[in-house]
Amino acid sequence: MGRSTPSKDAQALFHSLHSAYAATPTNLKIIDLYILFAVFTAVIQVVYMAIVGSFPFNSFLSGVLSCVGTAVLAVCLRIQVNKENKEFKDLPPERAFADFVLCNLVLHLVIMNFLG
């Protein structure tokens, strides 16, 4: 090994991460993509709030919590669907998806009520 520049180390780290992630099953990648989508949407709303102020505050909260909430639910789904997790070995992914859909519908009912 010997001395190496931090950028190279970082590059190597990213590379290894990327290659490790490439082995992830496609359905998990879709969930990850969905999580990213939700988180970015939440971030954009926070930025908007930081620029113009929090006037319709409940609308802002609804928007952000809708994104965060669905992201959290997606994370839960990912945990249950992942075959590496022995804990949920006996749980079929279809059942996990059904939970995900149900929780999303309940969450959004509350969000819509709160939206004003």
């Binding site: 993509l33 990213l36 989508f37 970015f40 949407t41 954009i44 908007y48």
Partner: peptide, 13 residues
């Protein structure tokens, strides 16, 4: 801007 991640999501898919 809010629609951008959605487009990104489709692009990723």
């Amino acid at each position: 801007f809010v629609l951008l991640p959605f487009i990104g999501f489709f692009a990723g898919l």
